[in-house]
Design a protein around this nucleic acid. Structure first.
Length: 903
RNA sequence: GCCGAAGUGGUGGAACCUGGUAGACACGCACGUUUGAGGGGCGUGUGGGGUAACCCGUGCGGGUUCAAAUCCCGCCUUCGGCACCA
């Protein structure tokens, strides 16, 4: 294992003529400061060094301040992509920085290992999902280590392992006990291609989130988590998420979608039944001219004999088609005025929201308006704009109309209306509520209905309970048994985990693959010991990722929630919540909301203290690249294009927009190639330098070259001056009285510490932090040390540079740190501090403006009193000339910056 | 349709939090230098216009201010999210 290796690398210039093939033989720990920077050699050396010492291992220690740095764990799809590189580079900088700042940093990684691609691979290629998954994990883990990420692998979790999913099942049982997990029959989103149920969040534009196939509605018995029980809490707590991007908080709020309104009963005329409707616009109650039921509403079937007609409406249910409806032949009684209005069944009314029935007010709701126009239903205006309610010309004129003896405002002619008036206004034609404003009337009318016992004020949420059943193999078996005698019986806690059987065939057709396994399905009822069948559905994989961040906190990866009692001393209490979470914005609602829900459930179980999992959230932008498209051959790889022409057909290639990297658009960069060619230090550096983390990053081959060049320059400076640097030992106090020639370098070094520190602290703006390092390198490379103290200042500059660079490009930093004579790993060094008095400039450039326009710039000593600054500015010959014969009106002085002379 | 974000050189971006020299840093380009040559390295220049003094410049139009990329109002464009949610 420790025998010398021979590695052969191509010269990074990649020129076909280049003969610089580098053969390297090296042992562990060998000092390799050669003239040429060889990233592969350096990176392997230090990765090995870190791994052998298990240097990133952390343990809970209540005497130390903790920092939990977490990046979203990947799905092991095969290889990592540039999005991962960016995500994990960002997280790693934070982890390494915080570690150097003295925090006890937990920085774990794992695998979101259940999911459909594994099963699809099984269907297509006959590989068992477990084999496929574990092989991918092995490869991707190697890749992550090649990136030099500072993970404590002792905490690794793999969600498809029984040790892990056992706890999915345990949480399920706990939730079942509390009534949070329950079973009901419902219409679900069904993807005919994936043959599975999809959560609402997994339906995008009416298509499957994975394969885009149009989703259909299907009725099935499903397991649900009652996330709606936490809706109000999840919503309220949104305002406490100070460390989250506002847009994500807003998306969560919108997703929860709270609305307050009134539920009211409309009696069905001549029958002993009533229709309960939900409205947020109780102020328009007097304008209701018909009632609509969802086609799946229980009353729909009762009121209409023609089942075929209902079926037809169902076909258009929930789609963005034209609105279609069916008159039931029955009438409903408006509880406000006892008016009889027709009952319709309409495709646009959703059973899932509110009560599945609405009162239709066509004058004040655009959907009802369109429906009313189509079916020639009356439109009655009951709200008018406030200005019209007062002494406007129109209302004056209309007041003259016969029959309106009292001072009422009359509606406009409904036939003239072109759209519904949906805003708030003043009520008309609403009995005693007329002339009230909408907001007041809404409450008064609701109170009235409540008093009459015909309804109640309610709060409604768009958020629906989380359907977790999936008709798939590669997921956590739901730990439930169906007994003919006892019905639904949960699996006993001590029987967990319910293990996924191996003897399953993957045909890709039919329902749950688990149903095929006799051994799995047939079991005994835990209660009566009679014959029983197991549940054959598995859990949504979002369950797995809703609590993995808690699992990481358990030392040595041995999760055991069962024996945990509420305990402030437990490692979970110590580490949770996550201080910094980093991941893609695509999880703004799905994963993040479920995690918040789960964390609340776990808190209620007494396992953790905080209801919120993630204190600070950083959503990084996508990695994008320009697309190339041939009119004949479609998307092209860069190598299929020469001189902007397709090499297959010679047609001019369309250089398309910069878009998110995706295999289908052929605009991807394989991180393996990048690492082989430039090394991971360069890859990391580029992805951090090209844009601030929250913004999209545009790929640029030249940009990568630039990052590589930068590291080479540093390497070159250290190599060239190695001996002198090694000899230039100094004590930090000595530097304060170094010779004049070194003062500006010393100052620049302190300024760089300040800038890099502030840029990291202030919203992780790594791009500007790296720019500051580049400036320091520019100064270092033009500095020519002559005296002893020059060399000391130079060494200080180099050491500081390397320390500041180490979170970004850790391997080269370690190597250079060692090569200038340091024995201990850079990981054991403290983050440098700057001295404000040294960082301060002695002279500043004063800008002199006249009427806001720059006219001159002069150098003045820093901290000069205002009067002197004013005098110097006015004495400047150029200014004198302009001022000649003009009267000064005022002079503004901005300390340390400029003077503006107003004339 | 609703909600949100962003528009700055040839390009990525900086300065926006806290109004005060617009364009840090990098890429690209040009010229020079090194080299047998290519690549690479090093050096200089590089917002636009003008010989120059100067003038113009942060999507467009207004406003506040001695001073606006920055604050306020209106509009346009692009991107993202939600979308029959009653």
């Amino acid at each position: 294992m420790f025998s010398p290796f021979i590695f052969t690398f191509l010269c990074p210039c990649q020129s076909p003529l280049c003969t610089d093939i580098i053969s390297a033989t090296f042992h562990r720990g060998e000092n390799i400061l050669e003239e040429r920077y060889n990233p592969q050699k350096v990176e392997q050396k230090w990765q090995k060094y870190w791994a052998e010492r298990n240097i990133f291992k952390t343990e809970a220690d209540s005497s130390k301040k903790k920092f939990y740095c977490l990046e979203m764990f990947p799905y092991p799809s095969g290889k990592i992509h540039m999005g991962h590189v960016r995500n994990y580079a960002i997280g790693d900088v934070i982890a390494r920085y915080k570690r150097m700042c003295g925090f006890n940093v937990i920085h774990p990684m794992g695998w979101d290992a259940f999911g459909m691609p594994a099963e699809n691979a099984a269907i297509k290629e006959g590989i068992h999902p477990a084999k496929w998954t574990y092989e991918n994990i092995a490869y991707m883990k190697k890749q992550l280590n090649q990136l030099g990420l500072s993970y404590d692998w002792d905490r690794e979790v793999t969600t498809c392992s029984p040790d892990y999913y056992k706890w999915n099942q345990w949480f399920f049982l706990k939730m079942y006990e509390k009534g949070i997990a329950y079973r009901k029959s419902s219409f679900v989103n069904w993807c005919p291609s994936c043959m599975t149920v999809l959560a609402n969040e997994q339906v995008i534009d009416n298509g499957c989130w994975r394969c885009d196939t149009a989703v259909i509605k299907k009725e099935l018995e499903q397991w649900f988590f009652r996330i709606t029980q936490y809706a109000e809490d999840l919503l309220k707590a949104c305002d406490e998420l100070k460390g989250w991007p506002e847009k994500v908080v807003l998306m969560q709020k919108n997703w929860i979608g709270k609305s307050e309104g009134l539920e009211a009963d409309f009696k069905v005329a001549g029958r002993d039944e009533k229709i309960r409707i939900f409205t947020t616009r109780a102020d328009t109650l007097f304008g209701a001219t018909f009632v609509c039921l969802a086609p799946t509403h229980p009353l729909a079937e009762k009121l209409v004999a023609d089942k075929e007609a209902i079926k037809k409406i169902k076909e258009h249910y929930g789609k963005e088609d034209e609105k279609i409806g069916l008159f039931t032949g029955h009438y409903a009684v408006n509880p406000a005025n006892d008016e009889k209005i027709p009952i319709y069944i309409a495709n646009f009314v959703l059973m899932e929201y509110g009560t599945g029935a609405i009162m239709s007010v066509p004058a004040h709701d655009q959907r009802d308006f369109e429906f009313a126009k189509k079916y020639k239903l009356p439109i009655r205006e009951v709200i008018v704009q406030e200005s019209r309610g007062l002494a406007s010309g129109e209302s004056q004129r209309r007041q003259g109309v016969k029959g309106s003896s009292e001072n009422t405002i009359l509606p406009s002619n409904p036939h003239e209306l072109e759209a519904a008036f949906e805003e708030d206004g003043v009520l008309i034609d609403s009995s005693s509520y007329s002339r009230l404003k909408s907001d007041v009337a809404r409450i008064e009318i609701a109170k009235h209905i409540e008093k009459k016992g015909l309804g109640k004020r309610v709060v409604n949420y768009k958020l629906r309970d989380w359907g977790i059943s999936r008709q798939r193999y590669w997921g956590t078996p739901i730990p439930v048994i169906y007994c003919e005698q006892c019905g639904v019986v949960p699996v006993l806690e001590q029987e967990l985990p319910v293990i996924l059987p191996e003897d399953v065939k993957f045909t890709g057709t039919g329902g749950s693959p688990l149903a095929e396994s006799e051994k799995f399905v047939n079991t005994i009822c835990p209660k009566c010991k009679g014959k029983a069948r197991r549940e054959t559905d598995t859990m949504d994989t979002f369950v797995d990722s809703s609590w993995y961040f808690v699992a990481y906190c358990v030392d040595n990866g041995k999760i055991d929630f069962q024996s945990l009692t509420p305990n402030p001393q437990s490692p979970i209490s110590y580490w949770m919540p996550v201080d910094q979470y980093v991941g893609g914005v695509e999880h703004a609602v799905l994963h993040l909301l479920y995690s918040r829900f789960f964390t609340r459930v776990i808190k209620d179980l007494g396992i953790i203290n905080s209801p919120e999992p993630f204190t600070n959230l950083l959503t990084q932008g996508m990695v994008c690249k320009e697309t190339l498209k041939c009119p004949e051959h479609g998307w092209l790889l860069p190598e299929d294009v020469k001189d902007e022409k397709c090499i297959k057909c010679g047609k001019a290639v369309d250089i398309g927009r910069v878009e998110k990297m995706s295999k289908s658009k052929k605009n991807v960069i394989d991180p393996d190639h990048l690492i082989n060619r430039y090394g991971s230090d360069t890859s990391r550096l580029f992805s951090l330098f090209a844009a601030p983390p929250e913004r999209d990053l545009e790929w640029s081959d030249q940009g990568v070259e630039g990052a590589y060049r930068f590291l080479n320059r540093i390497w070159g400076i250290v190599y060239k001056n190695k001996v002198q640097i090694q000899n230039a030992k100094f004590k930090i106090e000595e530097l304060s009285n170094c010779q004049l020639s070194a003062v500006s370098l010393l100052r620049k070094t302190h300024q760089t510490i300040k800038r890099v520190t502030n840029d990291i602290e202030r919203e992780y703006h790594f791009n500007t932090a790296i720019a500051a390092l580049m400036e320091l390198v520019n100064d270092l490379s033009s500095f020519e040390p002559k005296s002893d103290s020059d060399w000391k200042a130079f060494r200080f500059g180099i050491e500081t540079l390397v320390l500041l660079l180490s979170p970004f490009s850790p391997h080269i930093s370690e190597e250079l740190w060692e090569s200038i004579g340091n024995k201990k790993s850079i990981l054991e060094q403290k983050w440098p501090l700057w001295d404000e008095s040294i960082a301060q400039e002695e002279e500043i450039e004063l800008v002199i403006q006249i009427n806001g326009k720059v006219k001159a710039k002069i150098m003045i000593p820093a901290g000069l009193p205002d009067d002197d600054v004013r005098e110097k500015a006015l004495d400047e010959p150029k200014i004198q000339e302009i001022l000649k014969g003009k009267a000064l009106k005022k002079v503004f002085i901005v300390k340390g910056k400029l003077v503006n002379i107003v004339i």
